[in-house]
Design a protein around this nucleic acid. Structure first.
Lengths: 209, 209
DNA sequence: TCAAGTTATGAATTTTAATTCAATTTGTCA
DNA sequence: TGACAAATTGAATTAAAATTCATAACTTGA
């Protein structure tokens, strides 16, 4: 009878689908979108080329799905961190910690993410980049909100919360990228990021360059 | 006679060559390497496809030349700035200023630069990315050197000059990228970068999160 | 066990764009 | 001016990969 079985078929279908996606992610991350052929994805995921087309309309759709689904998880982790605890300092800290965790759990994805976010990618046409950027923008706004409220409460100082958000985020990203490329040299943690961002690098009071 | 004329021919040859490069730069920056065809480069630069092949062995070589030549100029501007004046503070400031100038003068290139520097690009094979990264690494080391010497002289504080260099550079890059995408919102200058980097964002003394 | 329906397969087709090269044009010099 | 060399042209070729689809292999329910 066709109603207890549906779930299993569905489950298996999803399993196969996500196998394909996982394989594709690895390959795209190693060799880029254009450097990866459908043949390769097929071989590595142990399906025939044709089969891929039963799951996805075309190569672009695989890529797009990959980006969109992971970006979603990514985004919501960070957003959650920014709301979780109370107090601006705690939120910032939770945010770096979440970012570290999410990055390290999704190394492959992060590579692609940058390829899409930064610089001239080939997916400009599909509007995929827009979608990602919107999410990132959204996150930055939220982060700016936290900083803004910290400024109002005299915990932070500064003119432009959005620029501060940008600075904060770019420091953590930079450290993480460095870590990805060179896991051993230059270890760092949430504290390092917070310290530099909060206290700055000057050893002299009220340094006015 | 064939000796006074050589220079003119040479000059014209270089002119045509650089016309091609300029056109290609614009296209690559707008649509990425794979999104740009030789046809397009030919049309836009007003040559025939075949002619392109008299100047460059293939599409890859155009791209590679572009990157390498511009990266060279780019790199030497920054390195010069870091040596120019005396005093660690002045050097840092000169460095941001140089970076702002160079970025704004080479918007098209910057887009490609990121595509190559960050994330999974397609040129991994050619080793092009390695070349750029080496230069960048070199620049970061120099920057770290400046910070290191500032730390010795008790102008700066911090454990790890390299991480500080990374932080410094990533803040300026982030602001510049923001500016590229959105020239009007969030104006900033070398002073903003210096202020955040040196004094931090905390309004409270010795904040120890 | 079998027939109808599903899904997987991969060789054949199509698409796309890089590259080549014979023909043509342009430039040089006696 | 004309013959030779050098440079340009773009239609034809080649190469690489995405996509299709007729065929085969499984699944299911009677």
């Amino acid at each position: 009878m066709g109603n207890t079985r549906r779930p299993r078929k569905e489950r298996e279908y999803q399993q196969r689908r996500s196998d394909i996606l996982r394989t594709a992610l690895t390959l795209f991350s190693e060799k880029g979108f254009h450097g990866t052929s459908m043949q390769e994805i097929a071989e590595k995921s142990e399906f025939a080329v044709g089969t891929l087309y039963n799951f996805f309309a075309n190569k672009d759709e695989i890529y797009q799905t990959l980006i969109t689904e992971t970006a979603g998880r990514f985004h919501s982790s960070l957003m959650k961190a920014l709301q979780a605890r109370t107090g601006e300092l705690n939120r910032l800290k939770a945010c770096v910690e979440a970012k570290i965790r999410v990055f390290l759990e999704n190394l492959d994805y992060v590579r692609i993410y940058f390829a899409e976010t930064q610089g001239a990618t080939f997916h400009i046409k599909t509007g995929l980049d827009t979608e990602i950027r919107t999410r990132y923008e959204d996150y930055l706004q939220k982060l700016a909100g936290v900083l803004q409220s910290g400024i109002r409460r005299k915990i932070f100082r500064g003119q432009n919360p959005y620029l501060l958000a940008l600075a904060f985020d770019s420091i953590s990203t930079a450290f993480l990228v460095e870590h990805m490329e060179n896991p051993d040299r230059h270890p760092f943690d949430a504290y390092t990021v917070m310290d530099i961002f909060l206290n700055g690098v000057s050893a002299v009071k009220g340094n006015k360059t």
